[in-house]
Design a protein around this nucleic acid. Structure first.
Lengths: 238, 238
DNA sequence: TAGTGGTCTAGACCACAAT
DNA sequence: TTGTGGTCTAGACCACTAC
């Protein structure tokens, strides 16, 4: 049964947003019991083809633009903004983002990454990036206020200078390297919502840290849906 | 019930390899129905805590060395061999590997990555890397025979020179950059077996390509369990 | 052959959404 | 209030494993 419904959805006979027959109705159509129907639909849900909504029904999930699968590519050294390959224009996306900055105390894990004491003051900025209104990336960035506090670039999204490297450079901190540590995990629930991803898809978590003389000057947790994006690194040797 | 069993396993009261009570026995102990027991155990299986074997029973999965979670780190530019962080000694692993080389015709996807024609002759080498006998990484590497054919380094694992960069250099091909494209996906069945990973664990797939004057000289698909490893990149700026 | 997990049917009650 | 999915119980048959 899952196979039949899957082909209907993939072929387009069941358009995006269409409501599937109720589980009881499918029980009758296919002459199988309700728990079996429910599990079959759970498979389709895990594949990202449908959304089940308790009390409302099951609906065909809008198919994401797979015309250029994995054409969006995160480039390792481009700041928290998602950067697209040179053919970004071909993809035809209108980038936008939301952010929120605040002063905060460094949590222990972040403090360890920044080489400061737990509870030290940091600038905390959360981002959500979208392309054509579709969310593609979350980021949480931390900067020690010991470095930027009181300078014109203390608040990342205010002033004329944007981007970690440029902002740091303007106050004499010449970022010389960046490390990225990539892991793969189940999304938290708020990430599932904010990124609008299907049940069962995993996300990349990238811990990115900017360095200046072996001293961390900024670190960020970047979360990217794992099903439609590839992380791309290019490293020059010698 | 899953919670109780999980804590027993994590605490060590149920040692690795121990056989769990049968599902019927658990039905009686917890006064819940068998389908419910089965689903609860499926949760533990998805978490990698147990293996279910039809006809035999459910067994506690050997706990992987989580003493240094994510201490093994793949370094972006180290060839197909897994490279560990500087504290590798502390982890105390004995690395080993298996390989198999053969002449082959380039599949279309590989040909595209290498910039050669589909069906052109390539050297195909498959690897499996282990640490202390535990599999940690699979790799499939392709080199155009147009470059290495007839040279002393045609066969990657024969001769005195090892490593893509050194071998290429010895025949005048000065590798100048490497690209890595990281994706995250469900493992194929043979990968699940060869890497001995739990149900539900995803894997990293890294497409690594070595370049010389914008010409691809080697490309490899590297598969790494997503649950216990982090990919670590360090990029120097300027 | 006996024991085990895989997986189905059938029925039930509950929580949530739309109205 | 009604219809929907979430999830349980209870029972059954099958396939595989170990002996």
């Amino acid at each position: 049964m899952a196979d039949e419904l899957r082909s209907l959805i993939v072929k387009g006979d069941l358009p995006a947003g269409a409501k599937l027959p109720s589980e009881w109705e499918l029980t009758r159509q296919y002459d199988i019991s309700r728990p079996t129907v429910s599990r079959a639909l759970a498979v389709l849900q895990a594949e990202g083809l449908i959304d089940k909504h308790q009390g409302a029904g099951s609906f065909v999930r809008p198919q994401r633009p797979l015309r250029h699968p994995k054409t969006f590519r995160y480039e390792g050294t481009s700041g928290t903004r998602p950067m697209f390959s040179t053919d970004a224009a071909a993809v035809g996306g209108e980038p936008s983002w939301e952010y929120h900055s605040t002063h905060a105390k460094a949590p222990a894990a972040i403090a360890a990454r920044l080489g400061i004491a737990s509870g030290d003051p940091v600038m905390l900025t959360t981002y959500r990036y979208l392309v054509d209104g579709e969310p593609v990336q979350l980021a949480t960035a931390y900067e020690p206020l010991a470095i930027t506090g009181g300078t014109p670039v203390e608040w990342p999204e205010e002033g004329d200078i944007r981007g970690v490297r440029a902002r740091m450079e303007s106050i004499g901190v010449m970022v010389d390297s960046v490390t990225e540590e990539v892991t793969c995990r189940q999304p938290h629930q708020f990430e599932t919502e904010r990124l609008d991803i299907a049940a069962g898809v995993q996300v990349f978590q990238v811990e990115r840290t900017y360095w200046y003389n072996e001293r961390a000057v900024e670190t960020a947790d970047i979360v990217i849906p794992g099903d439609r994006y590839a992380l791309r690194y290019r490293i020059w040797l010698r």
